[in-house]
């Protein structure tokens, strides 16, 4: 029984393609969202609950150039992870394993994540609280 297990012949011969990059990016954006996103989310809530001074400290960070780089980066990471996650859920159901479909859906994860990031900040700019 164990003798019949299939083996891939060339485990060390491979190259980066869009679906491989999308796969590892899902892991990188996911863990980035945990250690940057969730931590900052908790800081924001805790600062709001604590005091005006604590909130001012958070606001100074949030409104700084570094803060804005973080917010834009996190929003893109969230949309990348979200779209890549939807792709994973679709593949869990058995969809999209053909090479062409897999490459196309992976490509659309990248295009979609940039489009959603631009769309979010455009709506935020024109309809949001007026901080950007």
């Amino acid at each position: 029984m164990a003798d019949n297990r299939p083996l891939s012949p060339h485990l060390s011969i491979w190259k980066w393609r869009v679906h491989a990059i999308t796969s590892i990016a899902h892991r990188i954006t996911g863990n980035g969202l945990v250690f940057a996103g969730l931590t900052l989310f908790a800081w924001w809530l805790a600062a709001t609950a604590t005091s005006a001074e604590a909130y001012a400290t958070f606001s100074a960070f949030a409104g700084s150039v570094f803060g804005w780089i973080i917010w834009i980066g996190l929003s893109w990471a969230a949309f990348q992870h979200l779209l890549s996650g939807v792709r994973h859920l679709a593949m869990d159901s058995g969809w999209g394993y053909q090479l062409g479909v897999s490459k196309l859906s992976a490509t659309w994860v990248w295009i979609g994540s940039v489009l959603l990031t631009v769309a979010f900040w455009a709506v935020f700019h024109f309809a949001g609280p007026g901080v950007f």
């Binding site: 949001g128 007026g130 901080v131």
Partner: peptide, 17 residues
């Protein structure tokens, strides 16, 4: 909800939560 917040002042966020 973030887009619909009137402002990011602490008072607005407190009222929202």
């Amino acid at each position: 909800s973030l887009i619909l917040l009137p402002s990011f002042d602490r008072s607005s966020v407190l009222a929202w939560i």
